[in-house]
Design a binder for these strands. Sequence first.
DNA 1: TAAGATGATTACGT
DNA 2: ACGTAATCATCTTA
Length: 425
Amino acid sequence: MDEQSHLMQTLGGVTLTGHPVALPVPHDGTDARNKQDIGDILHQIMTITDQSLDEAQAKKHGLNCHRMKPALFSVLCEIKEKTGLSIRGSQDEDPADPQLMRLDNMLLAEGVSGPEKGGGAAAVAAATAAVGVGADNSIEHSDYRAKLSQIRQIYHTELEKYEQACNEFTTHVMNLLREQSRTRPISPKEIERMVNIIHRKFSSIQMQLKQSTCEAVMILRSRFLDARRKRRNFSKQATEILNEYFYSHLSNPYPSEEAKEELAKKCAITVSQVSNWFGNKRIRYKKNIGKFQEEANLYAAKTAVTAAQAVAAAVQNSQTNSPATPNSGSSGSYSLPGSGDMFMSMTGLNGSYQPTQVPNTGQTQGDSIRHTIGQSLGYSDGLRGNPLYSPHGLNGNGGWHDAVTPSSVTSPIEGANSVHSDTSN
DNA sequence: TAAGATGATTACGT
DNA sequence: ACGTAATCATCTTA
């Protein structure tokens, strides 16, 4: 026999008001029977999930339509009230988790969350600035950006997935609760509370996502920074250019900002790298001048040749034109062979300076050229044999004297020319 | 592989 | 902000 019809039968005789609040309190001998019937209903409710969907649906419908349902509902309401299971108020609002805020801030700062490209670029700029390197070196730069946007993409897809799942689940649960609210007392507040619980669960998952994203960004970033920290020697050409400038400005090896920029451009390095180089060079040169003599000679000779050529041309020019006509043949804007310091380098050879070191330059020829250059540049004082290689400008305290060659002179030739015009008279 | 060279970083001074 | 001096970390060379 069908259980439900049996119930219907057994409960059939009970008089009910049909009002949900009214409790069925029979006074006759049917008391025990009724109790058992209610127990049966409860049992059915409890086992409803064990049944197949169609079966359960049918049974649910049957129960919903049952005459006893309002009574049962009110009983459940009362029980609920007594056991205090009702809403304890939504006192547990989310107190804005500080860790979540940290993660959010970091993701925003790293350009993972927040607006599209801007944040990422800013983060990269910050990262590069932190290492003291300019915003160039575009290969590593774009590599970093590519990886970051990859992380960003994964983060956003995952986040979207979680949000979607959360919404789906929330609607599902809400529907379920709404439907259940027909059989058992469920207040909207309870539903809200349940939704909050679900959201909290999902946001804890989101937190994990954010955390792992942060970790990924940190790893990427540290790798990126490490890669930049990795020292790579400058190209030979770059070192040459820097050395040429250094030795041709030995009395005041402090390139101006413009000169640094120019050098940086020529050497394909950054301005701060130029500054680093000069900082290191000055220190190391000063620490052990002797060690650098050979290098100094080399560059002095080098510059001497070009200077000689340039000035020779200038001298030739001066025979026909005005003596002030400068190096027509030189192209360098900053490290022109005309810089006076190179003569000091040459005299600094400690007597070891051999004209033969200067290709195609004989002794007398070299002397005369040097003389001519010296005269034309106004640095003839440096030509007097200085037994010890001591660049003037380097004082006893180990510091360079005040600029002999103004540091702001981007083109030594121009500076020299001005000197020339002063001293030639 | 050790020693030296070299670019970068840091602490401090001006 | 820039320079010096010391130091670190890596690269180069013998």
